[in-house]
Write a protein that binds this DNA or RNA. Structure first.
Length: 264
DNA sequence: ATGACACGCGTTGCGTGA
């Protein structure tokens, strides 16, 4: 099975790219983030015509996640148990969608950005990651053999070599010890970040800002990552980053990450 | 060229992203 994750930065702006990507790669399950569309306006038909079932979770022009699957969809959960809310009154934002596809519990995740250190959004980000870790730990406690893939845009660069210039990031979000600790906590709970197992090279980026010629200069970040449960991690046989998706007309600022998963 | 931000909403700017 091929499982991919892609922060597409508006599905309506890039539906043709997504269709072409599925046709070209034959990915079985595609988890999307930043779809930026309400469920009723999601462009389902082009994907259904290709044989994919479409599960969406979007409230507005902000955030939004989805899962496209041609190996079945079951047990849809919009938001994870204990997911923190944002705003007053508090709202559980459309940042997490759980769908079981071909026997794998896929979570499409769009972790809050955090904006700036000390901003309420930053605290929200840390709380959100801690709550997700608690939920993920619970899934393994319930079933140590669970097949779980938490894929998406984590908005954390775990290593200094996951950003183009760690000096530029000094004092900014994505690289702070608190964010990295919140990310590493999933490993302590028994999960493995499986993309790095197969793509260990430094400066292997998945995101390049639209500004300042970041892509031509290869000044990017590695923030699109996958935590797999032990039973699923043992089945991951490869990973690749679809870097060419950053080229051409109207690209997303993120590219897809594809995982190869062997049959159990 | 991989090339100098882009999205949706709503209206000619604003909030957001990282």
């Amino acid at each position: 099975m091929l499982l991919a994750t892609w922060n597409i930065n508006s599905i309506r702006a890039r539906v043709d790219r997504a269709v072409a990507f599925l046709e070209r790669t034959g990915v079985d399950v595609l988890a999307l983030q930043e779809t930026k569309v309400k469920d009723q306006a999601f462009p389902r038909e082009p994907f259904e015509a290709l044989g994919y079932e479409v599960v969406t979770h979007g409230y507005s022009q902000w955030n939004g996640v989805a899962v496209l699957s041609r190996v079945g969809v079951a047990d849809v959960e919009r938001g994870f148990p204990g997911q923190p809310t944002w705003g007053d009154p508090g709202v559980a934002e459309a940042r997490a969608l759980g769908v079981t596809c071909g026997g794998v519990r896929v979570w499409s995740l769009y972790v809050p950005n955090g904006r700036e250190v000390g901003d309420p959004h930053y605290t929200y980000k840390l709380d959100w990651l801690a709550a997700l870790r608690d939920a993920a730990q619970g899934w393994l406690a319930t079933d140590p053999r669970a097949q779980v893939a938490m894929v998406g845009d984590w908005n954390v660069a775990p290593l200094d070599t996951d950003v183009w210039d760690v000096g530029w990031f000094a004092g900014r979000t994505h690289v702070t010890p608190a964010e990295r600790d919140a990310f590493t906590a999933f490993a302590h709970a028994g999960y493995t970040e499986v993309s790095r197992v197969h793509l260990p090279a430094e400066r292997t980026f998945t995101y390049w800002d639209y500004q300042q010629l970041r892509f031509p200069r290869d000044e990017g970040m590695r923030i699109d990552l996958t935590y797999a449960s032990p039973a699923l991690a043992a089945r991951v046989t490869g990973a690749r980053i679809e870097r060419d998706e950053r080229k051409g007309k109207q690209p997303s600022d993120h590219v897809p990450v594809v995982l190869e998963i062997a049959e159990p």
